[in-house]
Design a protein around this nucleic acid. Sequence first.
DNA 1: TTATAAATACCGACCAGTCGGTCTGTTTTT
DNA 2: AAAAACAGACCGACTGGTCGGTATTTATAA
Lengths: 199, 199
Amino acid sequence: MTHYSRGVETQHAILNSALELFSKNGYDATSVAEICTMANVSKGAFYHHFPSKQDLFLALMRTWLSDVDNLFQSAGEETATIPEVIENLAAIAGGIFDALEGGFPILLEFWTQANRQPEVWRRAVEPYQQFLGFFTELVQTGMEEGSFKEDIDPEVAARVLTSVAMGLLLQATFEPKGTDWQAVTRSGIGLLLAGMRKI
Amino acid sequence: MTHYSRGVETQHAILNSALELFSKNGYDATSVAEICTMANVSKGAFYHHFPSKQDLFLALMRTWLSDVDNLFQSAGEETATIPEVIENLAAIAGGIFDALEGGFPILLEFWTQANRQPEVWRRAVEPYQQFLGFFTELVQTGMEEGSFKEDIDPEVAARVLTSVAMGLLLQATFEPKGTDWQAVTRSGIGLLLAGMRKI
DNA sequence: TTATAAATACCGACCAGTCGGTCTGTTTTT
DNA sequence: AAAAACAGACCGACTGGTCGGTATTTATAA
């Protein structure tokens, strides 16, 4: 039985409160005092665990990114034709809409902050580049195995694929209700794949 | 010859400075004092022309939205098959990348603010809904004229089309250089259209 | 087990500075 | 003379972060 540590618990309380407040009001409009109040923690405790408000934000981002990464890792396991793999990924991406319910506003906040703070930018863009490269390679392989047309630029296709994901995520952020985003994602990617498939 | 008015000029100075600062640093991180300094205007002058910082932001958004709207109006003029119209629109959307050079960060700011302030949300989502409806109708017409497959859901297709646009815009915001976004947009939409076309 | 020392976690008053916005008065245009 | 435009000192509320002190947990030794 592992000891339960006080410190770890307050850290989680702070992280959870921060996630909620940053999502709702944004980074700048959320004060450290607010976070502390919601987490039932004193300011001293806050600065004992996090060097700065910035650092808290980065910690939050790290967690989120690794969560998403884990979700995607589970897709490349079964071997199949590339279009099937992409369809799998689309289904998983669609699942994110449910799994991270209400977690999109924070993504918007990540993007906003990434656009101003080089440190945030670096940490956000790096996984994105990796993601893009992964997709590019996927399309490339699909062309080699004869699933896709020969005149496709793999990088363009990869960018468009991620665009669909990002764009739908953004739309879902503003209209969370009334649309089955999982289904839209699936058939949207399906549409794109139809355009890429060799007839 | 119309009189040149002092007031109008300071208004423009304020708007321009605000656009630049909001884009670079975000709404919250930009102070009214900063805007005034950059615009060579006193705080008194600022609050003479704008009731509040909020109101300045809304004015900025109104201008931006109408600019974009004007850009798009010029696309539905020639009569052609629907796929051609969409290709036209893609070319124009691609042109926005050049026309509004560096104007994307402010778009990100619009989205962020829309997610917290109902007033901003209302004013931003309304044109977006209109835009979406326009696209849905376009796809519908394309199906009726026999250009598109029959099993397509027009609304889904419209959402995916806008997603591609939004997603590419977002990607372009983070990597302004090194990629010909106009070309990527064109061929990206082309890929999607290929998937929608009746064979 | 118990006494004690060291380390960790926590508290909240406090600081210097910034914020959006107001207000009184002056200058410029009509 | 009246109205519109502008200047900038000023205000209270609030900010991220600090700091001296206290409580709690853990390690050590008797």
